[in-house]
Every structure is written in structure tokens, then in C-alpha cells.
């Protein structure tokens, strides 16, 4: 009996900080969604201006993304093989590409709403916040994975209907680094961003 009570207390003690931790991550996702949705709706012609959309993403979303970690995970085993300078360049170019990808996706927020469903703690200090976009015939499931490693929550992966962004890029990065090395990857990213 005593053992049961003790383990129950331990379980509760372990759960309490975890829940508080998740609340912070959930709040951040909710706030990001609300801010961007409000901007897009206040300013409907925004949708037709890629430059303005990119500025919005740069301003409101980019600071909450851990581009360093995103790039590191997308490069996988090739990350340690790149020099410090190369790593910096890949991060810079890849974040530009991601900002553009996001800007394109934002237009849909005109008639869709983001709802936070729940969250769960992963190994380490990571939390996955599950959301859905509603407004079309079928809700779209979007999960944000955040970590609080360096003070404050930052997003490092987005999973749309089971498709992880990092995993999607890893395959591509791998094949490019395999055929033309890290400089080839930097060149490919630059070329894509210049278009």
C-alpha cells in the first residue's frame, strides 16, 4: 500500500512539470497561429504579394524556428562532415528556402482556422503539439515539434498529415551531398533561392 502511495506521488510529481512545460509550447503555437491568421485576414491583398508574405514570415515566425537544428537534422550524417563555414551557409540558404515555402502555404489561412488539439512530451525536452486546420471538407493534421533547449520554445519540425518536413529534406540533401558534396548542396540551395 505504502509503495503504491509513494509511486503515485512520484508519478504526480513527474507529471506536473511535464504538463507545465507542454502548456508553454502549446501557447506558443496558438499565439503564432493567431498572429499570422490575424495579419492575413486584416490584409487580404497580402496573399498576392510574395514579398510581403515573406516579410511576415520573417518577422513573426522565423524567430520561433530553430533553423540551426532543422538544418542539422536535415543534413543528418553529413552535418559533421561540413566545415563551420559551410554549416553556416547551409543554415542561411536553407532558412531562406523554408521561409519561402511557408509564405506560399500561408495564403490558405485566409479561410482556414488553426486549432490546437493536444500535446505530448517526447524524449528529452521535446514536445509535439498537435493541431488541425479546419474549414475545408476534411481537417488537416499539422504537428509542431518544439524544444526548449536554449531558453524559450522553438519549433524544429513540422509534420503535415504524417509527413515530416525534416525527413522530406533529408533524402534530398543526402542524394545531393552524395553526388556533389556539401558545396554542391550550397550551390543547389542558392540556385533555388535565386529563382
Amino acid at each position: 500500500m505504502l509503495r503504491f502511495v509513494v509511486s503515485l506521488c512520484l508519478a504526480v510529481l513527474c507529471m506536473a512539470p511535464a504538463r507545465a512545460q507542454n502548456a508553454g509550447a502549446e501557447d506558443l503555437v496558438r499565439r503564432m497561429a493567431a498572429e499570422v491568421t490575424a495579419q492575413v485576414r486584416k490584409n487580404p491583398e497580402l496573399v498576392n504579394s510574395p514579398a510581403q508574405l515573406a516579410a511576415l514570415v520573417e518577422q513573426r515566425l522565423a524567430p520561433r524556428f530553430d533553423f540551426n537544428r532543422v538544418t542539422q537534422m536535415a543534413m543528418g550524417r553529413n552535418w559533421p562532415r561540413a566545415s563551420g563555414g559551410e554549416q553556416g551557409q547551409v543554415v542561411a540558404e536553407f532558412s531562406k528556402l523554408l521561409v519561402r515555402t511557408y509564405s506560399n502555404a500561408l495564403a490558405s489561412l485566409r479561410d482556414l482556422d488553426v486549432q490546437v488539439r493536444d500535446s505530448r512530451s517526447n524524449s528529452g525536452s521535446d514536445v509535439t503539439v498537435r493541431t488541425q486546420m479546419i474549414g475545408r471538407a476534411k481537417p488537416v493534421a499539422i504537428d509542431y515539434t518544439l524544444s526548449s533547449a536554449s531558453g524559450g520554445w522553438r519549433v524544429y519540425d513540422v509534420t503535415v498529415e504524417g509527413v515530416s518536413l525534416i525527413t522530406a529534406y533529408r533524402d534530398e540533401f543526402n542524394s545531393i551531398v552524395g553526388s556533389s558534396g556539401v558545396p554542391g548542396l550550397i550551390a543547389a540551395l542558392k540556385q533555388k533561392n535565386a529563382k
Binding site: L97, R100, T101, N104, E161, G162, V163, S164, T167, A168, Y169, R170, D171, E172, F173, S175, I176, L185, A188, L189, K192
Partner: peptide, 17 residues
């Protein structure tokens, strides 16, 4: 707009989905 090697990107999206 988002892919570097469209073939590899599409393949990955399909298999993950």
C-alpha cells in the same frame, strides 16, 4: 517551390504519407 531534387522530394513525401 520547395524542392531541390523534385524526384527525391516527391518520393519521400509519398512514402511518408
Amino acid at each position: 517551390t520547395s524542392s531541390l531534387d523534385k524526384y527525391a522530394f516527391t518520393r519521400n513525401l509519398y512514402l511518408q504519407r
